[in-house]
Nucleic acid binder design. Structure first.
Lengths: 242, 242
DNA sequence: CAGTGGTCTAGACCACACT
DNA sequence: GTGTGGTCTAGACCACTGC
């Protein structure tokens, strides 16, 4: 048993993935052309092609005809936040102006048991916690707590976060070489308690959409836990099924 | 301008899609082998292959090595409900016993304006409305209203629905030849009103996850509007991002 | 065994972007 | 024009299923 048969293109995919992981090509860079990679790995172009097809499918890489294949990045993608599924209700597709971000808190602490478990840390390991409020048109829309492994995000401070424009995940790429590759979200409906209500400028008891996100880097290593509370009076969480 | 260049495999994909749509092969059937299709369309196997690859990606068709390629179906898929994203919290992957279904109401009426708009009907066209409660282990978990175009689902009655076991979408396939192919969901957090509370055995004001689903058949034709209210005390809506 | 989908190759040619 | 990804072909062979 255990035939362990692995197609050649899967092996090539793994090799390319390893290079991505090792940072041989940075986010936004082009990777070598299909013919170059074919030569490097001593396989045909078609085999490399199939490997890259899968990487593109996984959103690790972006193909652009005539130009090349690029390492995917959370920066410079004209969509502001790749993982944010909250959209304005109004049928209008007008780009709701960029979110205004207010950081409430940013501190290091020993990981609570549940956070440690989800991030694959030992209980008590150092974590960085960020609490912030996102607003659109000066109206609060999201309150979220973010937990990051302290060891990986060593130099990260409130100042860095506060001065930064652009997606947080883009900053993670640039400053810490951490690329968020996929995420799993768990949604529930909850009632606002007094603290949440104050920060979101609503009444206690107001219904909120609770969105817990665990985001992963390469190799299914969890790297961020995010607990968000979304106001859904004039916005909604959008999802496509197939 | 308007180069309108369309790869051959896309054209083949369209042709196969047309046959699926026309019911040349029924859900669960195998479609002709790649070589047969290649002969029929006078192209190489590789071209048919790429067409089928995309159809499989869209979940319209399922490949099974050594056996053939099958028309996807909502029946006989060992997952009970392909579009239901509500899972039990408990880490255990144990299959929560099948949902118990209680139909509260099933009637025909003239489509309200908003329902008509979403289903692409004229306001006042006949629609079938079904209201039901889904329970797990005798505990209510979901209250949902379902709207269907009256013309398409002509013979559908409460009796048919009540006596049927298995996914509703499977019944639609078998009885009306309607295959739900994809869906879009809109989520919000809301407070239970008196009516919802009574049906779900909770207190008014209890937070509920509102899930509005518009399900489509082939050609992006909307065929079902579903407004669900999910209890998320011990269950959650699960979503994967990439 | 025959029949199916899955892999791999080698080469020709097309569409697109830049220079 | 040159180089990139994208399409298409033809044929050989592999892996899985069921007779």
């Amino acid at each position: 048993m255990a035939p362990a048969f692995s197609p050649l293109y899967q092996q090539i995919k793994s090799l390319i993935l390893r290079s991505l992981q090792a940072g041989e090509w940075k986010p936004g860079d082009t990777i070598p052309s299909e013919l170059e990679l074919a030569a490097r790995f001593k396989v045909s172009q078609g085999t490399v092609r199939k490997a890259i097809d899968e990487l593109a499918n996984d959103n690790l890489v972006v193909r652009r005809q005539g130009k090349g294949t690029f390492v995917a990045t959370h920066a410079e993608q004209h969509i502001q936040y790749r993982f944010l599924r909250l959209l304005p209700d109004s049928g209008s597709l007008k780009t709701q102006g960029p979110a205004e971000r207010r950081i409430i808190e940013c501190r290091r602490l020993r990981a609570p048991a549940d956070v440690a478990r989800q991030l694959g840390l030992r209980s008590g390991d150092s974590v960085l916690q960020v609490r912030r409020v996102l607003s659109f048109s000066s109206t609060p829309a999201i309150l979220e707590d973010i937990w990051l492994p302290g060891a990986t995000f060593k130099g990260l401070t409130l100042e860095t976060l506060a001065h930064d424009k652009g997606p947080m995940y883009a900053l993670f790429e640039a400053q810490f070489g951490v690329r968020m590759v996929r995420a799993v979200e768990t949604l529930k409906a909850v009632s606002a308690d007094a603290e949440m209500a104050a920060l979101l400028a609503i009444q206690p008891g107001h219904p909120l959409l609770s969105v817990e996100r665990l985001a992963y880097t390469y190799n299914d290593v969890p790297m961020e836990l995010r607990r968000g509370l979304y106001l859904t009076e004039s916005r909604h969480y959008h999802n496509e099924l197939s």
